[in-house]
Design a protein around this nucleic acid. Structure first.
Lengths: 139, 139
DNA sequence: CGGTATCCCATGCGATACTG
DNA sequence: CAGTATCGCATGGGATACCG
């Protein structure tokens, strides 16, 4: 994403980025919170964290659990999540190398939120589909 | 929302979209739930729904609230969300046209989840940043 | 098994301009 | 005010091939 040319000219928006101890929320364009949101709320981030909420998993198990993800994307997202302190990577030295990913305490909090999201979608997907058809058909 | 429920777990045969009685969750690649997740969990979808959780808003107010969004993206996302039955679009016939967007009951449920996410990020962004610096510095 | 590197295309998204 | 249309590029992300 690019810089916001208008800067922080938000009217009434809470949080001034850069101010010491200021409350910076994800609604503000130029603040770190937005960056974290884009990481974590990416196409695969949600599913990976939600999957790891079910327990630690090895690479291929995780790849299996998150349907449709490529190894490249899994690896890439996992590195980003580990860098952000949300997941941990543990290597057990064995003849077949054994790498396990797990949630950190920080990641566990997020995982709970995302599990809630996944659950909501499972519950409401029919309603959304019905609304979509009603909208397309009726219009 | 759920603490850590296995509610979204796989029950029986996974990965067969359209199978009668099959529970289709967002972990499955080719199911509608995944599609909904990608819509709703997009870069702007989260912020738009979270913003509308504060109350109905007109176009430019919403554009102001969601820092950095272009009018094109706002319009595009708003149409998608309305099509999915998550937001409503109300036009008041006036000399300056007055259009107000609001959450539907369905959208309100999602908005609550996303507000939780935004709040979490606001709370934990410092921890993530610290972890990132520790990772980069130590590496 | 658990990755990384390269190629390449699809599309998300911003900038700009135009409309009712 | 509240959008839509068009252009163009940066990025996301799949396919494939290769490495420890």
């Amino acid at each position: 994403m690019s810089e916001n040319p208008r800067g922080s000219g938000e009217s009434g928006a809470p949080g001034v980025p850069g101010a010491p101890g200021a409350l910076s929320d994800a609604f503000t364009a130029d603040c770190p919170a937005r960056d974290v949101l884009n990481h974590v709320g990416s196409r695969w981030g949600v599913l990976i964290l939600a999957a790891l909420g079910e327990g630690p998993m090895r690479f291929h198990v995780l790849r299996d659990r998150v349907g449709g993800i490529s190894e490249k994307m899994l690896s890439q997202n996992l590195r980003a999540l580990t860098r952000d302190g949300l997941t941990s990577r543990t290597v057990e030295p064995a003849s077949p190398p054994r790498v396990t990913y797990a949630l950190t305490p920080l990641g566990h909090e997020l995982s709970s939120l995302f599990s809630g999201l996944v659950d909501w979608i499972t519950l409401r997907v029919d309603d959304v589909l019905a609304a979509r058809e009603a909208h397309d058909g009726g219009h």
